[in-house]
Computed example of a mutant assay.
Amino acid sequence: MPPDATGRRVRTGAELRRLRGTAGLSGEQVARALGWSQSKVSRIEGGVHRITVNDVAGLIDLYGVGGDVRAELLAATAADSGEGAWIVRTGGAPSPRSTAAAPQPVTARIRHHQPVVLPDLLQTREYARSVINAAGGDDPDAVAEGRMRHQEILTTANGPQYDVVLDARALLLAAAPVDLIRDQILSLAIRAQRLPRLDLRVIPLGRPSATFSPVGFTLYDFRAPDSPSVVCVESPTAESYFATPEDLQRYATLFTALRDVALPDVESVRYLRSLASDVERYLGNPALCANE
């Protein structure tokens, strides 16, 4: 067992206990929902029971935990069990009922690349509702509200540095009315200027590049010294996590290469404002998006 495994397990258990309280669930209710004994829940929360990634995934799904908190708890658990990569199945969008209401500054830095859809942390409420509805999510209003609360980590004290590289094609996803897409793009430009810990870069439509990623990915660097960094790659039914030094270096290198392809921060803001003013042309003529 690594020398810090017991301390990491105790800290993970304490955080799971806090999240259960935030969700308004008793230990007995959790045990019943997951088909466990109540004593197993108590041992996990006390840090005296070795837990698996699947155990933690079941708990945080029940509590509605998403984003960086979810990634940290899974990464800490995997480090305890010696796993360098793992897959966690998901049932769709996280439940909105709990932890988004109490954002925690668990990360020091988040690096996010998205070629398809805007990150949750940058969506407007109306745009989020439309995207969730288009994806067939349950209760779009509640999930969108949860995303708005989670976005508080970008403005709260000790929040993370958030570095984002967006492919402009993600900005033109026709999953919302044109006016909402325009407002969303303008919101990105405003946030990029106003949020000091947000570094937003955009890869313009048609920009030549020898580097690309067919999927979005997120690198999390956590504040706690015993929480290893991790990469998350999402799909509609599962999240794949990678924590080996080799995997982390590969994704970090890819992120840096994509950032180099993107426009600098000030030029990205200008590009966003220009794109917003002409969004109808692109959405009305999809061929232009490929040939610009």
Rank of each mutant, 00 (worst) to 15 (best):
R43F: 05
A33T: 15
L166R: 00
R149M: 14
P208C: 05
P140K: 05
E234W: 00
A174L: 00
G284E: 00
V269Y: 09
A257V: 04
P105E: 02
S81C: 11
A257P: 00
R125I: 07
Q193T: 06
V165A: 13
G92D: 10
W36F: 03
G64I: 02
A128W: 06
C232P: 06
L154W: 06
A75R: 05
R259I: 03
D4W: 05
H49V: 15
A101C: 09
P94W: 09
V65F: 08
R17E: 11
S229Q: 06
P236V: 01
L122F: 01
L34N: 02
P204M: 07
A23H: 00
L166K: 00
P286L: 04
A5L: 03
F222A: 07
V215P: 08
N285I: 08
S95P: 02
Q193V: 04
V53G: 00
I203G: 02
D80C: 11
S95L: 12
S213M: 01
S37H: 12
T22G: 05
L172P: 05
D183T: 11
P286H: 01
G47P: 11
V88S: 06
S268E: 14
T244R: 11
A252P: 04
V116K: 10
V164H: 15
A93D: 03
P160H: 10
L275Q: 01
R20V: 12
